[in-house]
């Protein structure tokens, strides 16, 4: 017999590299230089992510993206971006240590988030490949839906991490033994 499934599982992801990139997506040379350095074009569509191999690029704003790479590659990728974009108007900021990411999965993961968020989490609307900055229990967060497992990745500024963890644990109590 299978183990009774918990309604929602969440755990802290291992440290990852994060780089905040800003630049004008209307500038073809900027997009090309960034794409060359990353091997992936920053997604122009609002609230969408794009991934290939170890690299994930999340849309943060019309001229801002968050690039997620393995922790050990963070500085190398930032340097590659700096070199590639040296003659463009762009901003590259290494931000890996600034936040903590949880992975959330399970049949009640969406209910858990919905308790503290106003974002429309309808699976038809917040599909795989969607990401959004919003608020969870008044904490500014970045929510990403990479696919079906994990269902969600929740990135929280490190200074709010303890509060966010306490909130998640408390909010998840009622789902502890549900299928």
């Amino acid at each position: 017999m299978a183990e009774p499934a918990r309604g929602v599982e969440f755990r802290v992801c291992p440290p990852r590299g994060r780089i905040e990139l800003r630049g004008d997506p209307g500038d073809g040379a900027f997009v090309e230089a960034a794409s060359n350095a990353l091997g992936l074009e920053p997604p122009p569509t609002p609230n969408r992510s794009r991934s290939w191999a170890d690299t994930v690029i999340l849309w943060l704003g019309p001229d801002a993206w968050l690039i997620e790479v393995p922790a050990e590659a963070e500085h190398a990728v930032a340097r590659a971006l700096e070199e590639s974009l040296s003659d463009r108007h762009a901003s590259i900021a290494v931000a890996g240590a600034g936040s903590v990411t949880w992975s959330l999965t399970g049949p009640r993961a969406r209910d858990l988030l919905a308790k503290g968020m106003t974002l429309d989490l309808d699976p038809e609307r917040f599909r795989a490949g969607c990401c959004a900055r919003s608020l969870l229990a008044k904490v500014p967060v970045l929510l990403h839906r990479p696919g079906n497992d994990p269902l969600y990745e929740l990135t929280v500024p490190r200074s709010y991490a303890e509060f966010a963890r306490d909130w998640l644990e408390d909010a998840a109590l009622e789902y502890a033994d549900t299928r």
Partner: peptide
Amino acid sequence: PWCGERDESEF
């Protein structure tokens, strides 16, 4: 204009 409908608390 970019993100679509969102709650007032985000603004």
